[in-house]
Nucleic acid binder design. Sequence first.
DNA 1: CTGAAAATTGCGAATCATTCGCAAAAAATA
DNA 2: TATTTTTTGCGAATGATTCGCAATTTTCAG
Lengths: 142, 142
Amino acid sequence: MTKARKGVKRLLDEAEKPLSALDVGTLMEGVCDLATVYRSLHYLEENGFAESFVLHCSAHGTERYYVSRKAPHRHWFHCERCHRFIDLGACRIGAILKSMESEAGVLIRHHALYATGLCEGCRGEDSVSELVEKERGEEGRE
Amino acid sequence: MTKARKGVKRLLDEAEKPLSALDVGTLMEGVCDLATVYRSLHYLEENGFAESFVLHCSAHGTERYYVSRKAPHRHWFHCERCHRFIDLGACRIGAILKSMESEAGVLIRHHALYATGLCEGCRGEDSVSELVEKERGEEGRE
DNA sequence: CTGAAAATTGCGAATCATTCGCAAAAAATA
DNA sequence: TATTTTTTGCGAATGATTCGCAATTTTCAG
Ligand SMILES: [Mn+2]
Ligand SMILES: [Mn+2]
Ligand SMILES: [Zn+2]
Ligand SMILES: [Zn+2]
């Protein structure tokens, strides 16, 4: 494995959050080119060292993220306000997927599950009104 | 609702598979511009008439699909070989998401779940070897 | 250690889907 | 029907990702 690939792999292995290609690119600044980062991510994914998922965030559009496959497969929550990821823990839908698989007669090789909404901290913000346009009626703090 | 929006909405309501913006654009050919299709899809999604998810298909890259919200929320399987969608039925992960939500202390407003792999028809193809590079040992048909 | 052959990189130029700007057209209001 | 508010069409940006290709590394046999 080359220096660039090793470097990208290490970043993913050590990250405790999914990283975008650009996140990795920034962290690899000076070490290798962004095109190489993309190629390394592909290499790592094709060879089972990493996996990715794409989510659509209303504020930032389509975002693709990578995570190491060193640790067991897990799922993530993405906050629509602060754009941070929150760990939702290990995958709990194995059984459900198995039954869907047999019922639909397909062979599942990958799956993606993620949730979006508001994280604990962002739920209380006064700016929540924009998003949750409800919960109005109590006395706002303004 | 304008003609373009009505048209796009009808397409989604009547489709029995998720449609990409380009799919819709092609079907709306002559009726309205592609930019309007994008704007209509946004309108429909913002107003609760449709929802979308993004998936990454190894052969076609990142693809965003839209489905009507007329019918109850369901999940889909995407075949990596023939690129067709297979209905995996109504959402069965409500309870799991609820517990993840309370455990992580977040407020889930949306979620996406989809699986990819090989559909029933594509599992038997001789070309499977490319993808499943296993199951070798039996006598291939060639 | 070499030296060639194979694989990977850097960089700038393409792509591709999606978004924007803005004047014209259509829809909503009064 | 006149006026105001939205939506469209179209062509020009964008932004992320991919490509082409020559220069640089790696790999590997000798
Ligand atoms: Mn985001
Ligand atoms: Mn596909
Ligand atoms: Zn947050
Ligand atoms: Zn198939």
